[in-house]
Amino acid sequence: MTELPAAVERELESHDAFRATEDGYDLTTTVFETTVTATGAEGKRDGRFHVTVTLPSLDAAVADETVAPVVENGWFETLERRLEDTFAVAHTSTHEEPAVDREGEDVHVTLEYVAWDAGEGVDDAKTLIEYVEGTYAQGIIPGYEYRGPAATLLENAQDHGQEASEGGSGGMPM
């Protein structure tokens, strides 16, 4: 792991949703593989953040079935378009456009931004990753049986919906 700016490292270490890994920090509140790192930034800014979220492609998420290429490509193009607005939920206004790339069965979402304040930068990392997760969940196509992280997202939504219908707390199911 590259050395993080001290303020960023303190914020990530003290945040209960992140844990250190060999490559940086991982957000523990998502079902996807994530990496958060940062480097120094010019001026009085606390850091340039680099966030990567690895998602399964639609075909990789579907159990016991192959997704037609036209469906897979349409799903990916829709995901790309939906993720164009990712930074609308962040504090930062200094960022690169989200990069969404397919590599085999994986989709990599890369988000890079500058934070004036390390605490806001770390909060943005969490918010941005959760936005990517929610956007992925919105793209789950009914009619398929899912496995892996996609199945976990569906199970969590169903459990949350069941709790709400039984008078528990919570919002509407997905």
Score class of each variant (00 low, 15 high):
Met1Thr: 11
Met1Arg: 10
Met1Lys: 07
Thr2Met: 09
Thr2Asn: 10
Glu3Tyr: 09
Glu3Ile: 14
Glu3Ala: 10
Pro5Cys: 07
Glu9Phe: 05
Glu9Leu: 00
Arg10Gln: 10
Glu11Cys: 08
Glu13Asn: 06
Glu13Ala: 13
Glu13Ile: 10
His15Val: 10
His15Arg: 12
Asp16Asn: 08
Ala17His: 14
Ala17Asn: 13
Phe18Thr: 01
Thr21Phe: 08
Thr21Ile: 09
Glu22Ile: 03
Asp23Pro: 00
Asp23Cys: 02
Asp23Val: 08
Asp23Ser: 08
Gly24Thr: 06
Leu27Ile: 07
Thr28Val: 12
Thr28Tyr: 04
Thr29Asn: 03
Thr29Tyr: 03
Thr30Phe: 05
Thr30Lys: 02
Val31Glu: 01
Val31Lys: 00
Val31Phe: 06
Val31Ile: 02
Glu33Gly: 09
Val36Gln: 01
Thr37Leu: 00
Thr37Gln: 04
Ala38Asp: 08
Ala38Phe: 01
Ala38Asn: 05
Thr39Val: 06
Ala41Val: 07
Ala41Thr: 12
Glu42Phe: 11
Glu42Ser: 07
Glu42Thr: 09
Glu42Leu: 10
Lys44Gly: 08
Arg45Gln: 08
Asp46Asn: 09
Phe49Thr: 05
His50Trp: 01
Val51Arg: 00
Val51Pro: 00
Val53Ala: 07
Thr54Asp: 04
Leu55Trp: 03
Pro56Ile: 00
Asp59Leu: 07
Val62Ser: 05
Val62Phe: 07
Glu65Ala: 13
Val67Phe: 13
Val67Glu: 02
Pro69Phe: 15
Val71Arg: 15
Val71Asp: 12
Glu72Trp: 14
Glu72Ile: 14
Asn73Thr: 14
Asn73Asp: 15
Asn73Glu: 15
Gly74Asn: 15
Trp75Pro: 13
Glu77Arg: 14
Thr78Val: 13
Leu79Lys: 11
Arg81Glu: 14
Arg81Trp: 12
Asp85Met: 12
Phe87Asn: 11
Ala88Cys: 07
Val89Ala: 09
Val89Tyr: 14
Ala90Gln: 04
Thr94Ala: 09
His95Asp: 01
His95Cys: 03
Glu96Arg: 09
Ala99Gly: 03
Val100Asp: 08
Arg102Ser: 11
Arg102Asn: 12
Arg102Asp: 12
Glu103Ser: 10
Glu105Gln: 13
Asp106Cys: 05
Asp106Val: 10
Val109Leu: 01
Val109Met: 04
Val109Trp: 02
Leu111His: 07
Ala115Leu: 06
Trp116Glu: 05
Ala118Ser: 13
Gly119Cys: 03
Gly119Pro: 04
Glu120Thr: 03
Gly121Phe: 00
Gly121Gln: 03
Ala125Asp: 05
Lys126Cys: 04
Lys126Ile: 06
Lys126His: 02
Thr127Val: 14
Leu128Pro: 06
Leu128Ser: 02
Val132Thr: 08
Val132Gly: 00
Glu133His: 08
Thr135Val: 11
Ala137Asp: 07
Ile141Pro: 13
Pro142Met: 04
Tyr144Val: 04
Tyr146Thr: 05
Arg147His: 09
Arg147Tyr: 06
Pro149Val: 04
Ala151Val: 08
Ala151Ser: 06
Leu153Lys: 04
Glu155Lys: 02
Glu155Met: 00
Gln158Glu: 03
Ser165Thr: 14
Ser165His: 06
Ser165Lys: 11
Gly167His: 11
Gly170Thr: 13
Gly170Asp: 15
Gly171Ser: 15
Gly171Ile: 15
Met172Glu: 15
Met174Cys: 14
Met174His: 15
